[in-house]
Design a protein around this nucleic acid. Sequence first.
DNA 1: CTATTACATAGACATGCGTCAGTGTTATTG
DNA 2: CAATAACACTGACGCATGTCTATGTAATAG
Lengths: 117, 117
Amino acid sequence: MSVDLELAPKQKRAAGERCCEPVVYPDVQREQALRMAEVAKALGDPIRLQLVDVLRKHAGKVCVCELVPLFDISQPTLSHHLKKLRDAGIVDSERQGLWAYYYVIPDALRELSAWLS
Amino acid sequence: MSVDLELAPKQKRAAGERCCEPVVYPDVQREQALRMAEVAKALGDPIRLQLVDVLRKHAGKVCVCELVPLFDISQPTLSHHLKKLRDAGIVDSERQGLWAYYYVIPDALRELSAWLS
DNA sequence: CTATTACATAGACATGCGTCAGTGTTATTG
DNA sequence: CAATAACACTGACGCATGTCTATGTAATAG
């Protein structure tokens, strides 16, 4: 999988000349880069990465009240991180009475994972 | 691969009682989360992600002068992004005369990639 | 209804980020 | 030497981020 940027032919040039001609490249696949970067950015915080790890390990849905004591941050801060993960399309939640259960959206990490391997 | 956080037993409790006891968890593997989050954060920008993509596709080393025309940003901004990738341990560079050649460090993405799959 | 519990939202604060114009550094050409 | 080219660094700017305290909302207990 790639993001498809065309590259100018690679060759040395003597100084005193222009190094490279400007390259026109199709911005095909740029949306893919945007999507993957958004997911990567959401994973770019240790707490959020550990949150995703916990949610993935516990295949079912996990109550927020079980997540709070795992980290040295306040409950609102954790709520904020969960929202970031929701906005990135990585997790989703369900309310049941007073509790909120979070889970990883299947295949949410697939595109990035495939690109990385 | 996981980050190894212990989770409290998952069970509903009647309201009016504490939901969960605080959980003590070993911060084993927390360094791993820090490392992976650092890499993910560096990939969390579309331009940097595309830079890594270009460098990975062209297995050899790529001259900065070939990268500049691929993006709609100034040369100093691109230099800044390359520095971020260097700081994250994803790429490295070599100077040869006037030119600087960048390349992806082998296995720099392996840990994150393995965790994601 | 009142109190309590679980969770989210609001606002504030310091810090970090992405970008640019400008400048510096190093190497090559003439 | 002076001029030029490739690249990095500096400082500035607006905006986003991570964190907190305080408050809001919805549901349950009594």
